[in-house]
């Protein structure tokens, strides 16, 4: 590992479990991770293991039963303005236009209208939705909706962007296009991205590092460093396929 890399987010022994009908179900067990500044980290795991739960804890949507989260060296409790999120279900507000959705975070932060419009416009342009500012979400396609979701997260200028299976609801073609888009956006506006997926190909295509989680309860099974594989990657490249099958062989089957 490169010593110069700065750790921006540190998870320390994170545990999460829930009380269910017949006892207690462990979702996440003892996950410790260090995430570096401006890296593209992909968390890969099978089916319904604790990937989303892990994201929700970092975003402050739920509290871990054990463990600590450090952002920039200081412990955080609950949600933090420096962490943004792109949701799997997009979570756009149907009563707001594209502009209204994208500027939402700044509006809550009390930023003046002219100023937040300008910032929101910048990111609407960045995700390629220029001209759709006054459209409502129901008028957009799935891929466009998730572009709005990405612009909304960027507009609040977070240091860390959580993307929880953002393309899970999209069809295969749109998905490939959006993977390229998210890399392009990331190259232009460097942020730390933590990207959750259950798609191995997607993980190998996007990641600087892949954190492979085990089946339930989720633990860190292995970490792959993919920085030797230059981007943009070709999905049919032998080196790509080699890593892909390596990760694939090591992945637990979700039942």
């Amino acid at each position: 590992m490169d010593e110069k890399k700065k750790v921006i987010l540190r998870l320390e022994n994170i545990c999460q479990s829930y009380v269910v009908q017949n006892g207690v179900k462990d979702a996440v067990e003892n996950v410790s991770l260090e995430i570096y500044d401006n890296e593209f980290l992909v968390i890969l795991g099978p089916g319904h293991c604790g990937k989303t739960v892990l994201m929700n804890m970092i975003a402050g949507l739920e509290k871990p039963v054990g463990g600590k989260i450090f952002l920039d060296g200081e412990e955080i409790h609950g949600s933090d303005r420096r962490i943004g999120m792109v949701f799997q279900s997009m979570n756009l507000m149907p009563w707001r236009t594209v502009m209204g959705n994208v500027e939402f975070g700044l509006e809550l932060a009390g930023v003046k209208k002219a100023e937040r419009r300008a910032v929101a416009q910048k990111y609407i342009d960045l995700v390629g939705l220029t001209g759709f500012e006054n459209s409502y979400p129901h008028e957009l396609s799935g891929g466009m909706k998730q572009r709005v979701g990405i612009a909304r997260a960027y507009t609040n200028n977070p240091q860390i962007l959580l993307m929880d299976e953002p393309f899970g609801a999209l069809d295969a073609q749109t998905r490939y296009a959006m993977e390229e888009e998210v890399l392009r956006i990331w190259e232009q506006e460097k942020r730390t991205i933590i990207f959750v997926t259950n798609n191995i190909e997607e993980a190998v295509y996007l990641a600087d590092r892949i954190v492979l989680l085990s089946n339930c309860p989720a633990t860190v099974k292995q970490v792959y460093d993919l920085s030797g594989l230059p981007k943009p990657r070709n999905m049919t490249d032998p080196a790509f396929l080699k890593i892909r099958s390596e990760v694939s062989a090591n992945t637990d089957l979700a039942l």
Partner: peptide, 10 residues
């Protein structure tokens, strides 16, 4: 899901 957006944005 709408309230989650609010939580993330504090």
């Amino acid at each position: 899901m709408y309230l989650d957006v609010g939580t993330v944005f504090n």
